[in-house]
Computed example of a mutant assay.
Amino acid sequence: MTRRGRSLWRDRRGGAMVEFAIVLPFMLLLLIGFAEGIQMLEAHRRVSRAASTIGDLAAQYRTLSDSQIADILVAGQLVVEPMPTSTLGLRLMSFSADANGTVRKDWAKDGTTPYAGTAPDSVPSGTLKANQGIVVADASYVYVPMARWIVPSNINLQKRMLLRPRIADAVTRTP
């Protein structure tokens, strides 16, 4: 090896810059991945809060009119903002059990964007006893990732809340 080659081999200047250039892409990938994960968790929290809000508001009434239900569903949309609400689906339902314990759906209403989740149009068996009612609030949201090269497909978020009416045995609906 020539003298010039040996001096280049021993020269350690710029080593940190080379290491930084190697590590930087992984650090950026990690940073963007964390940001995407936090954004998705925030979307899930807001969807849960929207379902909880519309269910809680509906459970405070004896009787709801169509305009009151529409206002409650708008309140659910406002909880999700400033995230885009074009893929937010909300559904509000009321179920009651008769004296024999037979459960029937009293009414159901979707928001401006229909509910697109997979939750059934019923309540789990054993949820209602005779002469009881329950308000069911469903929320679905399609989360569209910002960094498609990290999270390549949309993520469907869903939440279901079951709430007992506070004032009456069941919440009824008037047109």
Score class of each variant (00 low, 15 high):
2 T>L: 09
2 T>I: 05
2 T>W: 01
2 T>V: 04
2 T>Y: 01
3 R>V: 15
3 R>K: 11
3 R>I: 12
4 R>M: 13
4 R>K: 10
4 R>I: 12
4 R>N: 05
4 R>D: 14
4 R>W: 11
5 G>N: 04
5 G>R: 15
5 G>A: 14
5 G>L: 14
6 R>V: 13
6 R>C: 10
7 S>K: 13
7 S>Y: 03
7 S>W: 07
7 S>H: 08
8 L>M: 10
9 W>A: 15
9 W>F: 11
9 W>N: 01
9 W>V: 13
9 W>L: 12
10 R>K: 14
10 R>H: 13
10 R>D: 07
11 D>A: 02
12 R>S: 10
12 R>G: 04
12 R>P: 01
12 R>C: 08
12 R>V: 07
13 R>L: 03
14 G>C: 05
14 G>W: 11
14 G>S: 03
14 G>A: 02
14 G>L: 05
14 G>I: 14
15 G>F: 12
15 G>Y: 13
16 A>L: 07
16 A>K: 05
16 A>V: 13
16 A>T: 15
16 A>E: 06
17 M>H: 06
18 V>A: 14
18 V>E: 12
18 V>C: 09
19 E>F: 00
19 E>A: 05
19 E>G: 01
19 E>Q: 04
20 F>M: 10
21 A>T: 04
21 A>L: 01
21 A>G: 04
21 A>C: 03
21 A>P: 00
22 I>S: 01
22 I>N: 02
22 I>C: 02
23 V>S: 06
23 V>Q: 01
23 V>T: 11
23 V>N: 00
23 V>P: 00
24 L>H: 00
24 L>W: 00
25 P>G: 07
25 P>I: 04
26 F>G: 14
26 F>A: 15
26 F>K: 01
26 F>N: 04
27 M>V: 15
28 L>D: 09
28 L>N: 10
28 L>R: 11
28 L>Y: 11
28 L>Q: 10
29 L>R: 03
30 L>N: 09
31 L>C: 14
31 L>W: 06
31 L>K: 06
32 I>R: 02
32 I>Y: 09
32 I>V: 07
32 I>P: 01
32 I>A: 11
32 I>W: 07
33 G>R: 03
33 G>M: 13
33 G>P: 08
33 G>I: 10
33 G>H: 06
34 F>G: 09
34 F>V: 13
34 F>S: 02
34 F>D: 05
35 A>S: 11
35 A>W: 06
35 A>K: 01
